[in-house]
Design a protein around this nucleic acid. Sequence first.
DNA 1: GATTTTATGTCAGACATGTTGACTTATCTT
DNA 2: AAGATAAGTCAACATGTCTGACATAAAATC
Lengths: 165, 165
Amino acid sequence: MSDIKSPAAPGHWREAELRQGIELLFFAYRDFTAGPDHMLEKYGFGRAHHRVIYFVGRHPHMNVTELLGILRITKQSLNRVLSQLVRQGFIRQTPGVNDRRQRLLELTEQGVALERDLSENQRGFIARAYREAGPEAVDGFRKVMIDLVADPADRARFTRGGKRG
Amino acid sequence: MSDIKSPAAPGHWREAELRQGIELLFFAYRDFTAGPDHMLEKYGFGRAHHRVIYFVGRHPHMNVTELLGILRITKQSLNRVLSQLVRQGFIRQTPGVNDRRQRLLELTEQGVALERDLSENQRGFIARAYREAGPEAVDGFRKVMIDLVADPADRARFTRGGKRG
DNA sequence: GATTTTATGTCAGACATGTTGACTTATCTT
DNA sequence: AAGATAAGTCAACATGTCTGACATAAAATC
């Protein structure tokens, strides 16, 4: 498939092979995000809103501090997009049960619908590539991608099957 | 390694498996870009400058239209970062030989040095993951990533070993 | 009970990156 | 000569990010 050959010694990669990896990440990510970016336009939302919708959908009743830790942005940045999503009825905030300072986040019915549309688009995008590449390639893909996640806490999200079911 | 099992029928993937793929792309890309983002701060540059430096470094004497096609941004957006890079001595423009309307782009000595630093960081990032995952996983990774590139012209960049050597 | 810490929100100002639209200049093509 | 193309420019604006300062409520600690 690729002109790039396996390296002579395992574990030693040529500059060209590593550079190919750099470009693969750039192009794959660019195309991976294009669909949702386009879908979100009609709501006046961007990629930041998508990330919030996605992770709140995945982890209902998550609090703001947890979300900030995943997104790695400041609370001011988050607050702008989050308050838009709350105002426009995609996310609901409820006070924490044990700690009433917290505002636990969850998708509204409208939020669930939007999250489903966005996720379906991206799942379809991934599914096409998985289907073309085959199950063995997908195993290798997952292995490398998990190793690319630098933060051990985030990596554990995948090696343990995710924080929540 | 992962709790997610292979699907019953090859080519049919469970929702959870595809969702894992979505998250892997998010986290891997987030961590992949963090190093260069930090390195570029001291020059007052951002990710857009990095992309320009990278592709001009990879394809010396590329013209502006070609670069716009890769980056998928408007010429006004490009021109802002490009003119900064030219003014600050990282990129040199020379008139095209056959077509003197073109301004062919290449890195200056200073530009080459910065590109090398940035690329070394990202190659190291990729190399670590490749080393941990092993050669077979890397083959699968490349296969899936190439299939994730939606645009056939961009995909050909990888299946033919790149436009230039 | 008073103090400190934590979780969250808010206001102000700034910067980086992207957009659209209109226009200019130089050069190539027909 | 006319039209198309490559590149640049000016203006206005949207989004997403940042820092810094401050406010409020509730929890934790002394």
